[in-house]
Write a protein that binds this DNA or RNA. Structure first.
Length: 337
DNA sequence: TAGGCGTGGAA
DNA sequence: TTTCCAAGCCT
């Protein structure tokens, strides 16, 4: 006897059929020419995964290529200076990732005999490697069974299984991980993991998903119930505040005064114009710029003032050897013309 | 546990 | 112009 209430609800594919369908789809429609998918090594996967945290593929590609030129091996990275590391990372954002990657390289060389572990549990001990990245390295670098849950998987699974509730909540997160683990195949994990990300990034997109191209739409809960545009559920975002900032410009023919910021707050360990709380009444304004961070807007004023005591003078021609925040670099570049 | 932490591309 | 948000992690 068929239960009328449940017969209206779509039935998910079996775990085996699910992974097989996605894997076959990926082979034809997925991304298989990304730089970190060639000459696969644990180090290359580690670098790519740290760079890809909250950052789009097209943004990462040039940084990844340059990084591998400068730091070809995990040993080379472990032996590099912090300034070299920050210089190579400058412009990519979320700079704690750069320090974590540097720490990770030292950790691998000094504590792990130069070898990344192949399982998620041990990978979690590596600096900068969280639950997603641990699974990703296990699957991508070693082709081992490992669950991965990132923004793509959350969106894909919340729609496919019809999971309601705030997608950022701990409860829903736990539910998604549970599905992710249950549906992880025992073979072809590299391609299966790539399939999840590719499907989420190119078909099951946040806005205007292309359901007609989806290989699992006939068993998708959201598609069957007309909730593709409703799931995943997100709570309203708070408006970000605006903060005012004052930066000191002390420029002579010998160069500009820069100071290395602390490890706390925004732009940790990057070189920057000295920042002050309040300018003197007599200070003259050189210019201004605005910048938008993830959590606040910066309305910056650049003051002309002596700043010898705040930092060191650096010739403009040598700026490329220092890691500078993007808006500061852009501002200084306007002076060099 | 919720907020801090960048930047740029796309609609 | 505004808004969203992207292969998250750390504290």
């Amino acid at each position: 006897m068929i239960d009328k209430t449940s017969s209206a609800i779509i039935t998910p594919l079996s775990t085996l059929k699910f992974s097989e369908t996605l894997t076959l789809w990926q082979k034809v429609h997925g991304r298989n020419d990304l730089p970190w998918q060639q000459e696969i090594t644990p180090y290359r996967v580690l670098v790519s995964e740290l760079m890809l945290q909250q950052t789009q593929v097209t943004t990462v590609i040039p940084y990844f290529e340059r990084w591998l030129q400068h730091f070809p091996t995990v040993v080379a990275l472990a032996e590099a200076s912090e300034d070299e590391v920050m210089t190579q990372w400058q412009g990519l954002g979320y700079y704690s990732r750069a320090r974590n990657l540097h720490k990770a390289a030292k950790f691998v060389v000094n504590e792990l005999n130069g070898q990344l572990p192949d399982n998620a549990e041990q990978l979690r001990e590596v600096p900068g490697v969280g639950p997603y990245t641990a699974g990703a390295i296990s699957a991508f670098a070693f082709n081992k069974p490992a669950a991965i849950v990132d923004g793509n998987v959350k969106r894909l699974f919340s729609r496919y299984f019809g999971i309601e509730g705030d997608i950022s909540s701990a409860k829903v997160n736990k539910t998604i991980w549970s599905y992710a683990e249950r549906y992880t195949p025992t073979v072809n994990n590299r391609r299966y993991a790539q399939a999840l990300l590719d499907l989420g990034a190119t078909v099951c997109t946040p806005r205007s998903p292309d359901c007609q191209q989806c290989p699992i739409r006939t068993s998708c809960n959201a598609y069957a119930t007309g909730r593709v545009d409703i799931l995943p559920e997100k709570k309203a975002k708070k408006k970000i505040p605006t903060r005012r900032g004052y930066f000191v410009l002390d420029l002579t023919t010998d160069g500009v005064i820069l100071t290395q910021r602390s490890g706390d707050g925004i732009w940790p360990r990057l070189w920057c114009l000295p920042q002050i709380l309040e300018p003197l009444e007599t200070a003259s304004i050189h210019g201004s710029f605005k910048h938008i961070f993830s959590h606040y807007k910066l309305d910056a004023t650049v003051i002309i003032e002596s700043a010898e005591q705040f930092g060191q003078r650096i010739p403009l021609e040598q700026l490329d050897n220092y890691g500078l925040p993007t808006p500061i670099r852009k501002y200084l570049n306007t002076l060099r013309v």
